[in-house]
Each structure stands twice: as C-alpha cells, then as structure tokens.
Design a binder for these strands. Structure first.
Lengths: 343, 343
DNA sequence: TATGTTTGCACAAACGATTGTGCTAAAACG
DNA sequence: CGTTTTAGCACAATCGTTTGTGCAAACATA
C-alpha cells in the first residue's frame, strides 16, 4: 500500500500543528498570522519531504473534486473523440481532470455512468445524451451539479446546451444538391430520436419541400454506425428508382456507404453523389474528396466549457437562471463528391 | 452545495449505528451477526432514501480509488484514441473509471500529469510515455502503484510493457517494397527517441541492408505530426534522386505526405508508392487505398489491462516480479498504394 | 501596574465512509 | 440458579485534509 507523506509528517518534523502546516501550504500565512520564520520552515520541510497533498482527502473535506465527467455516445466516432479531446485539454488548463466515459449509445449505460460519476462527486458534467430521457441529468442538475449538454440536447428542459445548428447545415447542403440538379436524394440517418439527427432530417426535408421535391423525400437508417451506412446504401442501390445522391448524417455512416458503393463497382461522383455531416482531415484524401458539413468542434468544446465553468463559479445562480441554448453554425466544405447533373 | 444522503441519515432513520448500516450495505450482515430484521430495514431505508455511497470517502478510508490513469501522447492520432477507447471500455467492465490525459507528446507535461494522477491516488497507471525519462514512472511504481507501458516503452527498466513488434512490421513491409523492385525508399519517422520509432527505423534499415541497399537508406523527419509528413515529403520531392516509395511511420505522417503529393500533382502509386504504419477504416477508401501495417490495437489494450489488473490484485508480487515484456505481431494489409516496378 | 490589543499558533470538529474491538442482554448449559 | 456462550449491535479511531474558534504570551496603552 502506498504510504505517502502527509501533512502530519511535516507537522511532526517542524513541531507545529497540522493546522499551521495546512495554512502555510495553502498560502494563508498572512491571513492567519503565521510568522515568516515558521512559514519558511514549513515550506522547506514540505519541499524536502516532497510533499504532495492527497486530493482525495481534499475533495472529501472541501466538497470539491476538480473532476469533470464527460459522457460521450461512442468513442469510435471521430467527431466525438475530437470534441472530447479539445474539452479534455481545455479543462486541464483550468485545473480539472476529466473522467471520460463512452456509453455505447445506450441509454441505460448512460444512466449508470452518470450515477457513478455523481458518486465520485464530479464538479460538473458534460454530456452528449444518447436517449430520450433527461430525468437522470435533470436530477443531477437539481442536486446542484452543473450539467451542460453538448452536441445533443433536449427540447424543453432546464438543461443548457451547446450544439451545432444542424438544421441549417442540412438545409444548406440539401439545397446545394438540389441546385446541382439532383432530385432523387436519399438521406441515411443516425439514431432517430436524438436532436442532431432530428434537426438534420428536418433540414433535409424542408429543403426538399421548399424545392417542390416533397415526393422524393427518402429517409432511411437508424443509427450512426458504419454498418448502418453500408446496409442502407446496399438497399438504396436495389431500388428501381435509385437515388442520384446520398446524404449521410455522419462520417461513420458515409464510410459505410463508400464501402457499399465500392463493392457494387460504382464510383463517386460519376455514378453517385455523396455528402456527409462531420469533417475530418482524411476526407480530403478520399476518392474522391468528400463534400461535407463541418461542425465547429473547437467552438462547441470551448463554449461548453465556458458555460460549465461559469456555472461552477456561480452555483447560486444555477437554479435561478434560464437555460442557455447555443447553436453554432456549421460550414459546408465543398470538395469533389457531387456531380452536377444536366437539367 | 450538493447535500447527498449519507450513511448517517440512514443510521438516524433506522436508529441503528452507522457501523451497522455500513456492514449491512456492504454485505457483511452475516459476518457481524446483524439480524435479518435489522438488515432488511436498513436496506429498505437505504433504497427509500436513494442512498449512494460517497466514493471519495470510501477511497480515502480504503485507500483504493477504483481509478486508473491513462496517459496518451496525442489524442488527435487515431491509433491512440482507438487504443484508449478499448482500454476505457474494458476497464469500465471491471469497475474502474479512467482519467484520460493527453500530454501533447511533451515530457514535462507527462511528468506533471502523472503527479496529478498520483495525487488522486489512482490504483494503476497505463502510460504511453513520450520521453526518454522513465524515472517519474519508476518512482510511482516504486511507491507500489502498478504501472504498465503501452505501445511505447523503455529498454532496460523494471516497468512491464505491451507493444507491437514494430521491428518485424517495418522489416516486413520494407522487404515487400524491395520485392516490388523499389530501391529508393525513404522513411519518414516520428519522434526519434521513442521505442516504436526506433524499432521501426531499425526494421526498415535492416531490411535495406539485408537487400544490399545500405547506400539507399534515407530516414527523415522528427515527429508524428501531419505537418512533419507534409514538409518532409515536400523536401524529398525536391531531391535530385527522388525516392520511388515512401514509408510513413504513422497514419498522421502519411496524411501529410498525401497532401504534399497532391499539391505537387503526383499520384499514388503511379508516381510514388506509399506505405504506412497504423491502420484505420478510412485507409480503405483513400485514393488509392493505402497498404499499411495494422497494429493489434485490441490485443494491446486487452493485454495491458490484464497485466495491470493482475498487478493490482497481487500487489505483494509487484516488486518481486521481473517485468513482463510483451510484443504483439502486426499484420501487413495489402491495398493498392504500391507500384510494382520493372526490374 | 492594570488593561486592552495584537501576535502566533493549537485544539478539535468536521467531510463520509470503514473497521477493530467491546459491551449488554439473551440464550444455553450444567 | 450461576456461569458460559452467543447474538446483536455500538463506540470510537481512522483515512488526510480544512477551518472556526480559542487561548496564551507579547506588546502597547493609559
């Protein structure tokens, strides 16, 4: 068992009380009128013994853990890892460590891990909720724990959120496809009930409707996996009326589509146009480079943290405030996966 | 401030001591002869009040945190995130939470975060060390904290490790290039002093030597970034004697190469053959699909955890045992980025 | 000299659990 | 009925900190 140096060892060695040691080491010498001499001595001994405070004890006593929970749906999706990465690094700069957990896009797992995080007395929670329920999160929030929804959120909930304006992104890129004279545009969606998916589908559908293509609306699929992209693409290709363009609602989905198309010997964009949500460096080097909707990952991460830290600092306001609801605009990155059809 | 239900609330409500409550809730009713009646009552009240133990208090008292530290060099590299992902999920199944930190491939940051993790009394550390020094890790290990090096490791150190057999992977793929009649093969390396890089370079060099191509050995570059891949490729292209093949030592590096080649209007593999370490789904869909050396990510993760958990369970043996040193074999995945030259 | 003020620090209670030990009352035994 | 055993639980210390308060000695003031 690890037997580290404690404040009491210093206390013994310096023959002052642990109270005094604690105060010196926390920079309260002045405040509690510890003589410079004593303070010096304590600090020297602390350094000599290579003392480091036990954060567990501090957490227990101060009721502050400097731990932030981060719950993501699926770490094999590069969008989530990218955001998680930025969040983790940003929070470290602010003196927080993060406990990162992947809930496998499963609601019960999410509830379980949120409880676990609460047991560890996290100072705040950043969550990309994967289910329809928000009670477990609102409960936590009600207990006074700052909670921010990131990327995914709930319509009417006291929880603040930061997300991409998924609607506008989807609307815009669909309009672009239509502008390129595509009419048969299929949309492969992810988890049906989560907000980003809902909004993206809505954006797609509205753009179709606004162009008088209501009849052509075609939404298939049911999760954000690559398999889903693969299978749905295969099925789309078997239709009598094949789409001329596919809009994948995540980078994972589109990778599945690509695989299916390749297997069928179809090439992009000659035989099929392809666009996707999410951005990634490698999209530039695909065959062909894929036109995509880049989410503002860094801004999402930074804004979430800003809001979270704000709540942590102003706990009193926590309950009083109305939720902040922030939607950040995505940008369409035009590459080479859309064929311009003759009209 | 969060005011949760404690064991004392239950104690009050049931009119038994907190000792008894604790024993009941930990399943020690039998052992301490708590009557079934009392036990029942305690459990009911605990459920009614929705009691959950404060893990911070438990950690302090039991000197066990159920926290594992995971330190990776760079979370924007998909190899690391992939391994981290598997590790995190596997550990969760074993009742551990992981604190994940990215040290930005900086040695001082690594030392700092390792100290921070120690302050939190992690039960074990999985680390992909980014520097030449191992003292901070050996210190921790010496304090009785299980430490396993993952992917990266040190030559002569008491620390156990799990990594890919980088040498054989590099040797094999270089031999393959040579077998395809390439002679001018350049190697763009990552961080010079880390073991995987060292071993990969060695594999490359030995393969060249064994084929009598000692004169042609060409190792450039100095870190695992995409920028490094980009810049070094640009420079290679300016040489009077251009290489006919480039061996990138990571997926990030090769993405940089690809960018440089594209800018120069060169296509793969017609104008330049390309191979890389690391595997990723998207490599299949690049233009062209890249031949690569797939590391056994899942096995690395699982083996690391197995060793770590073993150490945690057998702490006594910790110091006594000789380090375990595990190298797992990679596999070359042949795709379409190597041109077979006429000899 | 008596009183008030400041200096410099220590005592002891918390935080929320776990755990070695001790104690009382009832049951069992002879 | 007296003694031993067992059942059933509580006391209090402990983990390593932080923190409200108290208190003696030194000093200043009148």
């Amino acid at each position: 068992m690890r037997n580290s140096i404690t404040i009491n060892d210093i206390s013994r060695e310096t023959s002052v009380s642990n109270t005094t040691v604690s105060r010196v080491l926390n920079g309260f010498s002045r405040k509690y009128r510890i003589s410079d001499e004593t303070a010096q001595h304590v600090m020297e001994v602390a350094k000599k013994l290579n003392y480091r405070p036990n954060r567990t004890a501090v957490s227990l006593r101060k009721k502050v853990s400097n731990l932030i929970g981060l719950v993501v749906p699926d770490l094999s999706n590069s969008f989530f890892t990218n955001v998680a990465n930025i969040i983790t690094n940003e929070l470290k700069k602010n003196g927080y460590s993060v406990i990162l957990t992947d809930c496998g896009d499963d609601e019960n797992t999410e509830i379980e891990v949120v409880n676990l995080l609460n047991d560890r007395r996290i100072d705040g929670l950043l969550v990309m909720p994967c289910g329809k329920q928000s009670e477990h999160l609102e409960d936590l929030y009600g207990q006074g724990v700052p909670v921010i929804c990131v990327d995914r959120y709930f319509e009417s909930s006291p929880l603040s959120f930061v997300a991409t304006n998924n609607y506008s992104g989807a609307y815009e890129i669909t309009k672009y496809l239509i502008g390129s004279h595509h009419k048969h545009i299929a949309c492969i969606q992810g988890l049906e009930h989560v907000m980003p998916n809902l909004q993206r589908v809505k954006g797609y559908m509205d753009a179709m409707k606004d162009a008088g293509l209501e009849e052509e609306i075609c939404v298939v699929g049911n999760d954000f996996s690559q398999e889903n992209g693969y299978l749905e693409t295969k099925r789309l290709l078997q239709r009598s009326q094949r789409p001329t363009a596919i809009f994948g609602l995540s980078n994972t989905i589109i990778l599945g589509s690509l695989k299916a198309l390749e297997e069928e010997g179809l090439s992009v964009p000659q035989d099929m146009s392809l666009v996707t949500f999410d951005n990634a460096e490698y999209l530039n080097f695909l065959n062909p480079p894929l036109t995509s909707i880049a989410q503002p990952n860094a801004e999402i991460a930074q804004m979430s943290i800003k809001m979270l830290l704000g709540m942590i600092r102003n706990k009193e306001l926590l309950a009083a405030q109305r939720p902040e609801q922030i939607l950040l605009n995505p940008t369409v990155i035009h590459r080479k996966s859309v064929k311009i059809l003759k009209d």
